[in-house]
Design a protein around this nucleic acid. Structure first.
Lengths: 182, 182, 182, 182
DNA sequence: ATATAAACGAGACGGTACGTCCCGTCTTACG
DNA sequence: CGTAAGACGGGACGTACCGTCTCGTTTATAT
């Protein structure tokens, strides 16, 4: 259940998204770039957002690695690092930021975003499980909350505040959450 | 330096944004709704994003109150509460989420978002100053970091995960940051 | 040399022509309505016009009766009557007018129209032969011319002038041609 | 109330109609050929048929001359001649036949056709008035009927029978109507 | 009865044109 | 003489059919 040139279409979709942004991503542009007729795209996906969501599912551009350094602090710093890279290092950042930004406005992409974060959390759980076994984490600690604090801060800093993030930020953020600020 | 029907234009802009979303917000729609010619809008603002940025500056829909409960924890919980309300309670939420979402794609709005968060931080600073005076906060604690962790988590939960947030979340998030999870 | 569901196809063709007009008659519509795949239609007829031409050949919706009242005048009036009915009484009129109108633009249908009128003329010849035997017609009179004058007038009135035609018109037209107006 | 390049649009419309037929007449084609954007055409005319109707009203390609030879027979022969020319001599014939053929299917064009024939009849009336004054016409003779017989026969012969028409036809047709065939 | 060929259905595709929406610019008339 | 109405070129939208193609699956007939 996929068009014959599905890969070209997805690739063109992500390329256009990365280079021209979400509003510059047009079905006509994708069609031209992927050597497919516009009709074919509409035959398979009802909207630009649905097409992009499908392309995002297929790509491994946004894949994450699950760190396992032996220390929760280091693992979390690595995760924050990965998040920073995801939102700042081209070409993944162009895709990730634009797609997450568009998810605000489009249900199909919102769903994709939910899957994206749910999938990440599933992998991150391993980190917390190991930490808990090592006694590095309180029993009451909530992994989703911790990751949302950290990842949310990265998003806010990078996208909303437009500030650059360095290694120190990762360390400081992780420290704040692990050790508290009071 | 403002058109005669500036208020109607801004109001129409925010109404359209709230009801139809960012993509449904069109210059033509604003013109029609505010009884002004499209040309007039283009004379004063170069783009939809700039118009919206201006409208956001003028509105008090997104204003915040600075809590002063006598306790940092309570103050932070109140701030998180406010953030949750901002992103979930209509009509402010429709405007705030759409505008912040669009800021990802549009420089003018990104600038507005930066001002928005800078302005909030300036007010929040009072909370931290008081807390520091009361000895509720380490000297090394970074207010901006703390607020980014908390506000970022709210954004991520509400917008990217699509999850509802309640009072417990505010308390838990503040506790994590204040007390640490290790 | 006909598809298995030929009758359904022809019926669907004429139905669509009658209800939606020539432009609303589409191969896809015929395929759907007749429970046949679009490919099958294209296997047998090269175009919409060819399909319609074939359907018209098969139908007896446009058949005529040859009058024989014993009087040329009465016979001609009956023929004019039949022509009026053909162009004004549904459902035949919907098909006949649309098909003849389309014949202007499409060679296949033009050929069908020529056959249609040639066939009618062959039958009408009997009327004139009898009249000539009865001495009701000059030797020099040209049956085709007479019929073209009468039938042409009906077409022009009904289709181009959009006027309703009644019995008096038939009588007056026949009188003009039989008796002259000078 | 007309677009700035109205003349170019009308000209392109009639050219395309003449060269490519009614179905080959496309709004996009007219737009391109007349150096106008498609949007502009839709701004002024709701459909292809309406555009064509407007173009036909403006053109003098289909204008007729009113003969005045001093004899009804000659005048009528001249009128039939003109009708034959209108339906057979390019470029007028391409436009006239296609437009009248399309009038069968489109209300706007049907209206235009009615005006066209009504206008012709108004001019032809002069011929009949003169003839009546000269005593060449019975008092009961109906000009519209006479013209419909003659013009209808020309249409039927040329378009539906696909036969060539010569001077003899004009003479014979006029003779039949003036003198009768009985 | 069964092979075999014709006919068919399913459905993807490139393509053209449709008619619409909105963009941002430009012309023009008027107050 | 500047402002505002609105006409304009332009790009993309999403849709409808077109006519073509490939590929299995019936369905009849002719051994």
């Amino acid at each position: 259940m996929a068009p014959r040139k599905g890969q070209q279409i997805f690739q063109a979709t992500l390329e256009l998204l990365a280079t021209r942004g979400y509003e510059g991503l047009t079905v006509e542009g994708v069609a031209e770039r992927s050597g497919v007729n516009k009709t074919t795209i509409y035959r398979w996906w009802p909207s630009k957002a649905a097409l992009l969501a499908a392309a995002l599912v297929e790509t491994d551009l946004l894949a994450m690695e699950t760190p396992d350094t032996g220390s929760l602090r280091k693992d979390l710093e690595a995760l924050v690092h990965g998040m920073i890279a995801l939102l700042t290092q081209p070409p993944a950042a162009d895709v990730a930021v634009a797609a997450l930004g568009a998810a605000v406005h489009h249900p199909e992409l919102a769903t994709a975003a939910q899957h994206f974060f749910a999938d990440r959390l599933a992998r991150e759980t391993a980190v917390f499980d190991r930490a808990r076994r090592r006694g590095e984490l309180r029993d009451t600690a909530d992994p989703m909350l911790i990751m949302d604090l950290l990842a949310g801060a990265v998003w806010l800093r990078v996208v909303f505040r437009g500030l650059p993030l360095d290694d120190d930020f990762a360390a400081a953020a992780v420290a704040a959450v692990l050790d508290g600020v009071a």
